[in-house]
Each structure stands twice: as structure tokens, then as C-alpha cells.
Amino acid sequence: MYLCTRKKQHKHIVLDTVKPALTRPSLISDFKEITKFGLSISVVFSSIAGYLLGAIVVDWWTLVLLAFGGFFMVGASNAYNQIIERDLDVLMDRTKNRPIPAGRMSVNTAFVIAILFTVLGIVSLYIINPKTAMYGAISIFLYTSIYTPLKTRTPLAVFVGAIPGAIPFMLGWVAARNDFGIEPGILFALQFFWQFPHFWSIGWFLFDDYKKGGFFMLPTGKRDKGTAVQTIIYTVWTILVSIIPVFGFTGDLKLSIVGAVVVLLLGLVMLYYAFELFRKRSSKAAKQLMLASVTYITLLQIVYVVDKFI
């Protein structure tokens, strides 16, 4: 029996020794985490969609510069954010294993990445045209210097954060036309209003975790009817803005009747889940709304682009 016990103990020791080696994040995964690679790619997708909507003739070199510039700018913003919030990230389950709070990356290393990405992003966008670089720089400034500090002070932080969050879609149009008019204004407004149901749904199902870090993400500060009602209102605004181009007074940004019907149906699906959040007021309903919002904005951008070229 003693030998059996020793074998079992030895087996546990081996497993305990091997497991960290298998689950320990790599340098690549830490780099992806500090720059929020997935989010950065989604922003690049929005920028490219905006460019294709605005382009009279597609210039592939501009498209490449926009993709890299957008990726660098978002990566820089997220790196700055994680540097600033490193002490708060330790307190929350969803962020405590990030590279800086987990001790796998120093603040200096993260800062070098942030600075490098800022420079590369601005240069890439400036090569396209100065206006594109300016809006990219404004996005970094608002996200890092205003939105991030406000998150622990007021629910209005979501309003401020919605501004840089809405820039990528219209940034693509500005990259294509070197001009800001009603067309990129509509693209900005569409993604601006969309931010609210998207982030409030996240703030709802991560409420307890955000509370540990002292973040104010919901408009009323609570998971109540007030928050749910405001989520519905901003979802409705999102839907209304999304179909405006069908009426023909948004310049070169146009949408066919078929395209508008598809976009409207997509919006109604998101609105359904917003009402479900109001009805159930549960974390599950909030997660469903979040997933519906991501699906909505992705498919909407695809529909807009396809509608233009068909």
C-alpha cells in the first residue's frame, strides 16, 4: 500500500509540474492580449467596410495602409489602457491574468509597445491623408486620456468611449475621400448609437466583476428597468440611423430598398433581445443581446458593402 501511495503522489507531482507549462500564456498570446488582437481585427474590419463604401476606385495600397494603421491605433489604445488600469485589473476575474497584472510583462515593455504602435499607426494613416491620421490620433486621445479615467467616476464614460468606438467605420470613408461630410457622419452616428446596447449588455452580465474594479458601466449604476429601457431606446436609434441612406439624402452613401429591409430585419432581431433583457433582466439575456449586437454590426457592414457593389 505504501508503494501505491508513493506512486499516486508521484503521479500528482508530475501532473502539477506539467500543467502550468501547458497552460502558461506564451509571448505571442501576451502580445495579442496587451493589444486586444481580436478587438483590433474587428476595428480593421469596420474601417475597411467604410473605405469600400467611400471608394470610387479601390486602391489596394491605401487599403493595406488603412488596415495596418487601424490595427496599430487600436492596439496602442488598448496597451495604454492596460497600463493605466493595471492595479484595477488585478481585482477583476476577467482581467487579472492580463500580462501586466499577472507579472508576465513590465509596464515599460507595454509602454514601448504602445508608443511604437502609436507612431506606426499615425504614420500609416498620414500616408493615406492627414485627415485620416488626425481622426486616428483623436481616437487614441479620447480613449486613453478621457474614457479610461472616467470609467471609475461616472457612467458617462460609456458616452465618451462611444466616440472613439464609432470612429473606425467613418475613418474608412475619410481615407477614401479625404473629406468629412454627411456620409461619414451617418456611418459615425450608426456605430455611435450601437455602442450603447453593446456595452451596456456587457456591463450587465459582468456587473459584479466590474464592481470589484470600481467601474461604472450602466447608465443608472444598476441592473434595473431604467438601464433596460435606455438600452431599448438606443437600439431603436441605431435601427433608425441604419436605414436613413435608403431615403436618398445622404449624398453618396446609398442603400437600396432590399438592403434597407435586410438591415431593418437585422435591427429588429437586436431589438427583440433588448426587450428580452427588459423582460428578464438576467445575465443570460444580457449575453444574448451582446452576441446579437456583434452579429448585427458585422452583418450590417457586409450588407452595406454588398449593396453598393451589387
Rank of each mutant, 00 (worst) to 15 (best):
K19P: 10
A79S: 15
R86L: 05
V236I: 14
I243D: 12
G103Q: 08
K131C: 01
S293N: 12
G161Q: 05
S106H: 09
M105F: 03
Q82R: 09
L265N: 13
S46C: 12
L91K: 12
M290P: 07
G50Q: 03
A79M: 09
A286L: 07
L206Y: 11
V261G: 11
L150H: 06
L125Q: 01
F71I: 04
I163D: 12
S77P: 14
Y147H: 07
I202L: 15
L277R: 04
A133G: 06
A260T: 07
A157L: 08
V57A: 15
A110S: 10
L291G: 12
R223A: 01
P168N: 06
I297M: 13
F71Y: 15
V18W: 01
S29I: 05
Y210M: 02
T148V: 10
F71Q: 02
K36Y: 06
Y296S: 02
G259C: 09
V306E: 13
K225G: 06
L240C: 08
K19I: 01
K131G: 01
G136I: 01
F159L: 15
Y210N: 00
K32D: 11
L255N: 04
R153H: 12
K287M: 12
L253C: 09
Y272M: 12
S283F: 03
T17Q: 10
Q230I: 03
A274D: 06
A228I: 04
T17K: 11
G267I: 04
R177Q: 13
L171P: 02
L255P: 10
G181Q: 10
A67D: 12
W200Y: 05
M73L: 15
I182P: 15
F72S: 03
V263W: 02
R94E: 06
G161R: 02
R24M: 11
I202T: 03
L218D: 00
S201Q: 06
S283R: 10
M134L: 15
